[in-house]
Amino acid sequence: MDKERNEEQEFLKDVDRFLNGEEVTPDEGTNEDTRSAIEFARKLTELRAEPSPEFQESLKSKLLRKLTEQEVAAREKVGANWLRDFMDRLMPQSPVWRTAVVTVAILMVATGVMWRTGMFTPTGGLEGETLNGRFSEETFDDESQKWNGMAVAGEQEEEEEGEAVVNIPPWPGAEDDASIFGEELQLEIEITAIEAITRLAGAGFTAPYGDEVTLTLVFTNTGSEPITIDMPQITIAGAPEIGIVYTLSAVDDPVELIPSEPLHMLFVWEQQDSTGAQVTPGVYIFNIGTITITRGDDTFEIVPPSVEVTVVEPQQ
């Protein structure tokens, strides 16, 4: 019995040693059965299947994309919780006072609706409505789903007379400090082995009248192989009745992007239309076409989100 136990201990010790990468030579006293069990255990280790590099890479990309989605969702949840907490603090705890507050709020909304429909003014209608209002109504009716998805009616704000500023909910992943005056537009595009993640850093940008507007695209290849990027033209569109005002040319030749080294592509718009004239203040959309990525024999396409910039009326 003790001998059997010793053989077992000898076997277990040797298995642990070769699993740790150590050289193993069974003791001379080890019996043939245990010796051959140790040899077979070594064979088991040699025959182990390994995950293919392709599988490892594609699963890693998939998981990193999920991680990004989780981070975005967590950020949005934090924002929603903050709003709910804020509203909770705003609302009185007493049921009587709560009822009173809600009643006042309903009365204010009703008054607002009646005023907007002209019930309090003899002329009625929407005279005096700013460029912002007209622009947004037409935009949402006529333009693509992408516009509708980015801007929601009711989130328009009328600023000082002559300014047209549209508040846009940030693109997922956008930084919180959107609308920083004069900040550079930056769109990050992270290309993994099989897919692309686009992230807009900042949203709803404003630019002083007459200033250059620079759009920077940052490409990062997190895959293990070099890729080439075929960059299309970028169109800049004003309100629907204005249409495309300017086109930034496509990059002539495909650009090679090696793994891990970020590539910055800068596109400068001098706020001019195709005739060279300064554009009027208002909202302009940078529509980036389909970017084609090639890796070996594989080709895939990215359609980045549109980028919006508001040209602000010059200060008097």
């Binding site: 053989e7 076997f11 298995v15 069990a37 077979f40 255990a41 088991l44």
Partner: peptide
């Protein structure tokens, strides 16, 4: 483990 490896062998 000792028994299983011998059986498998």
């Amino acid at each position: 483990l000792y028994r299983a490896v011998r059986k498998l062998r």
